[in-house]
Design a protein around this nucleic acid. Structure first.
Length: 552
RNA sequence: UCCCCGAUGGUGUAAUGGUAACACACCGGUUUUUGGUGCCGUUUUUCCAGGUUCGAGUCCUGGUCGGGGAACCA
């Protein structure tokens, strides 16, 4: 169990102190509370790993709670996508699945309790009037003329609001706290508003909806959440969170805030991601270039790599910007150990082995994964006519060039050593064919030739190759901070998608299934696209390149 | 202008008054039938000024810089 002694982050330290002090009966019960108004992204993945991970670590439970208090922006499409993404990441909401809307009646009763205690009142003013009385940081606000209404009148009016007898915007319920408070959120915040909008779960049962601040802490409390973890932006809300719990005398859940994840070359705002989708810049929420969990999944990211990434990023209170290279490293590190190696040629040109008998083929054995002996071996066909990568041949080269060129000798991966014979160019000077001679006693595994070429090339037998489309992705933005200045749309990378048709892949790939990620030898990690791939006409997405150490 | 939070290599995160470390990135070497992987190594760090202390990244005071805060959003 013991592992190496890893340093605890500040939340782990608090949890251990709480357990030691017997707080919350020594329980650790967390929750992940998304609003179902968009798709989850890599930033949420960190939050998920933190809340679920901590509970797991301390033998506790985690609830999934949909924070659905604003029916205008929410839908079941999002609810389902969120469920799928969390499950795919490998987490189970073993504390249960809840909806803030399940608590609408309870929340209404809490509000009545506050009214009864003289701690809430109905305000008949407009949003503008209320805003103008709020004051400003450093300047106190002024009390609403409706602030001293009696509990009886407030109660009657609140019931009228609930019964649909008031128009939208006509009245709100406000907590009665302190219009001169240093924390603007404590200046009599609105806690209920009227919305004649159908809710995706409660339909038209309700026309009044609680605000976030009046719902969140109470929901935590109802579920007896011990550690309510959220991002730094809610620090200013904590006093309110605690005020409601205390005023109501309910279970004292505790909120702790940590820094959310930021990634360079990426945007993380749901609103902005929605704009990319709506304006057709990307192919939906799950476009492989999107930082959404569904996009990363379609791209070829594994749940393990995302969890390792979240772990490496750490948990602290300072704002951060993580290098995307850490995300990519997490994927490569995972896939290097697990991904089956196959050969594919993305920009094919003819490679003819002049001294190999015409019409003859042979099967060669190659390992599926040099990092994992248990992955076994497979057979690949070899013959006189092959495909090679256009980039692997150059006419003019220097001594750093390890690949094929006039006068050069290379190894064909898992096959033979071949030496340049000649090549064919078209009228534009593009090389269309390369001709070589092979060394018969250099066969892979049985090489007695004594020849030691520097380079090894991937290849595919022309007669047996399958055709595939391959999609290469680059970062969506060319600016490290797309939101830094001006419109983030101006920072888009115009070359974030490159579609390659007519790629040649080895025949074993005909059995490829969605969800398996392959290493195309020397090229990177690729997976079948779940949206566009069809039997017989495969489409592969490049998840990430291999690290390229070539400085040529 | 007021309140809250933060500040450690290029990027993150640790060090809990006692030798500033780990990962990613970068650079170099080595191994290699993937210019991948592995292995070895180099470079680079405590915001500023005072104070407490035998000793301060850590505690105190003041400052500077950065983030958040005045939605009938979450």
């Amino acid at each position: 169990m013991e592992g190496e002694a890893r340093a605890l982050n500040f939340i782990e330290q608090k949890i251990e102190a709480d357990i030691a002090a017997g707080k919350h009966g020594g329980r650790v019960h967390t929750r992940f509370p998304p609003e179902p108004n968009g798709y989850l992204h890599i930033g949420h993945a960190k939050a998920i790993c933190v809340s679920f991970g901590l509970a797991q670590q301390y033998g506790g439970k985690t609830n999934l709670r949909f924070d659905d208090t604003n029916p205008e922006k929410e839908s079941v499409e999002y609810v389902n996508a969120i469920r799928e993404d969390i499950a795919w990441l490998g987490f189970e909401w073993n504390g249960g699945e809840y909806y803030t809307s399940d608590y609408f009646q309870q929340l209404f009763d809490y509000a009545c309790d506050l009214i009864g205690k003289g701690l809430a009142y109905i305000d008949d003013q407009t949003a503008e009037q209320i805003a103008s009385q709020k004051g400003a940081p450093g300047t106190p606000g002024i009390n609403s003329p409706f602030r001293e209404r009696s509990p009886e009148e407030n109660r009657r009016l609140f019931e009228e609001m609930k019964a649909g007898q008031c128009k939208e915007g006509e009245r709100v319920l406000r907590a009665k706290i302190d219009m001169a408070h240093d924390n603007m959120l404590m200046r009599d915040p609105v806690i209920y508003r009227i919305k004649f909008v159908d809710h995706h779960r409660t339909g038209n049962d309700w026309v009044i909806y609680p605000m976030y601040d009046f719902a969140h802490g109470q929901s935590d409390s109802i579920e007896r959440i011990s550690h309510s973890l959220c991002s730094l932006e809610f620090e200013n809300h904590r006093p309110l969170y605690n005020w409601f719990i205390q005023a109501l005398g309910i279970y004292p859940s505790e909120q702790t805030e940590f820094a959310r994840l930021n990634l360079n070359y990426t945007i993380m705002s749901k609103r902005k991601l929605l704009r990319l989708v709506e304006e057709g810049v990307v192919d939906g929420w799950d476009d492989p270039r999107m930082p959404t969990i569904s996009g990363l999944r379609r791209r070829g990211y594994t749940p393990e790599s995302i969890r390792v990434f979240a772990d490496r990023v750490g948990v602290a209170k300072r704002n951060n910007t993580i290098d995307v290279s850490l995300l990519e490293w997490s994927l490569r590190d995972d896939l290097n150990r697990r991904a089956p190696r196959v050969m594919a040629v993305l920009n094919p040109i003819r490679l003819r082995v002049l001294n190999y008998p015409e019409g003859e083929t042979e099967m060669l054995t190659t390992v599926n994964n040099p990092e994992d002996e248990s992955a076994g071996t497979r057979e690949i066909p070899f013959g006189r006519e092959l495909w090679m990568e256009a980039d692997d041949f150059r006419v003019e080269v220097n001594k750093k060039w390890f690949r094929l060129a006039p006068g050069r000798t290379v190894r064909l991966k898992s096959a033979y050593i071949v030496e340049y014979a000649d090549h064919v160019e078209d009228e534009h000077g593009n090389v269309t064919e390369v001709h070589v001679n092979y060394i018969p006693n250099s066969r892979s595994g049985q090489d007695t030739s004594g020849v030691k070429p520097k380079g090894t090339l991937h290849w595919v037998a022309a007669g047996q190759a399958d055709e595939a489309e391959v999609r290469l992705y680059d970062r969506l933005f060319r600016e490290a901070s797309p939101e830094a200045d001006g419109d983030f749309m101006d920072a888009l990378n115009p070359n974030s998608l490159e579609v390659l048709k007519g790629c040649k892949v080895e025949p074993s790939l005909a059995q490829a299934e969605v969800g398996t990620v392959f290493q195309f030898t020397r090229l990177g990690y690729f997976t079948l696209d779940s949206k566009y791939s069809k039997p017989g006409s495969p489409v592969f997405n490049r998840a990430v390149t291999l690290k390229d150490g070539w400085k040529g």
